[in-house]
Design a protein around this nucleic acid. Structure first.
Lengths: 171, 171
DNA sequence: GCAGTGGTAAAACGTTCGTTGTACAATTGC
DNA sequence: GCAATTGTACAACGAACGTTTTACCACTGC
């Protein structure tokens, strides 16, 4: 079994559930079921672990969102929300939690945002032959992620319908 | 001068900028320009200070968003984003930062979300004679707040236009 | 058989955390 | 003039933090 991966997966969940700064190394080692010595051997320090957890989330997230249309994007997001608790964008939260003071975290957040924009832009171009609606769909996507944390899956279904309307009727 | 208010206002900014758990009492007393003894006399403890800062943010936010139409709502949000740095919803972040383990924070977040929903629902009813589009507008609002943290005011302008289209063309 | 690898447990490092105690200064109302 | 109020500075508390050290165990391949 891959110990490093096991640590990172546990950390992704722990940071999401309990916060980045508020999650001490004790809680992280307990969640991963490894000694602190092993964790430090594999990850170096807490900042690098945060970055690794974010990278893991990003890869898992975009794997789940590997789709061919905007509608499918929101359908997959709905699937995600049924499998995982929604607590708002983990990357936005990581930045706020750490006060944007951790370089490793800032870098990972930047990569995520760039990747999300590219994904949305590509889908929008495919359907409208223009990038113009990218921001609009991006806003709805971010809104769905945020609102799902207290409106549940209804927020995502609403977002899905809204996106369809927008792609038809936006200038 | 009202010392308590001065402490709370400084705390609102400090928590927003540096995170809730990551902001120590030293930083909070420094920002408020008071001694730690004074802060504790007025606020009791850190959890209560967090709640007070969130209440302050809520009141300030809804005062800025005291409008008569959905379009004006987004216009005011754009004004807000030009006066303040956007780092995503402070309430969502407070919940994630503390791992939803602080009752005082959970309560304030619940009040905020309820008030936001009521505001949006009232505006939507006024314009469409139905509450049906509430979730859709709520999603766009949340998305504007989140996306503005890295897309700037363009996200809010895009959200404003999207909301107008939706109110016209949603079933 | 033995070096190498990859893990454990437990204690300790110095620092920072949230919070309180003590002692003192400035302003105010009667 | 004096008591009350409201603030300060500063040191201390025990606990928790991130990190490292020390010593030890189990498995692997040659």
């Amino acid at each position: 079994m891959n110990t490093k991966q096991q640590i990172i997966i546990a950390a992704e969940q722990t940071f999401d559930r309990h916060g980045f700064t508020a999650s001490g190394m004790d809680r992280l080692t307990d969640a991963a079921n490894v000694s602190s010595r092993t964790l430090y051997k594999h990850l170096g320090n807490k900042n690098k672990l945060m970055a690794a957890a974010l990278k893991q989330r990003r890869e898992r997230f975009f794997l789940a969102l590997d789709v061919e249309s905007v509608d499918a994007l929101f359908a997959r997001l709905a699937d995600w929300s049924e499998a995982e608790d929604m607590r708002g964008c983990l990357f936005l939260r990581a930045l706020g939690d750490t006060g944007a003071a951790v370089e490793e975290v800032k870098a990972e957040v930047a990569v995520y945002r760039q990747q999300l924009r590219h994904l949305v832009a590509n889908l929008v171009v495919k359907e409208t032959s223009s990038e113009d609606a990218t921001d609009a769909v991006l806003v709805i996507f971010e809104g769905a992620v945020s609102a799902a944390s207290y409106c549940g899956i209804a927020a995502i279904q609403s977002a899905r319908a809204s996106a369809a309307v927008l792609l038809k009727h936006l200038p």
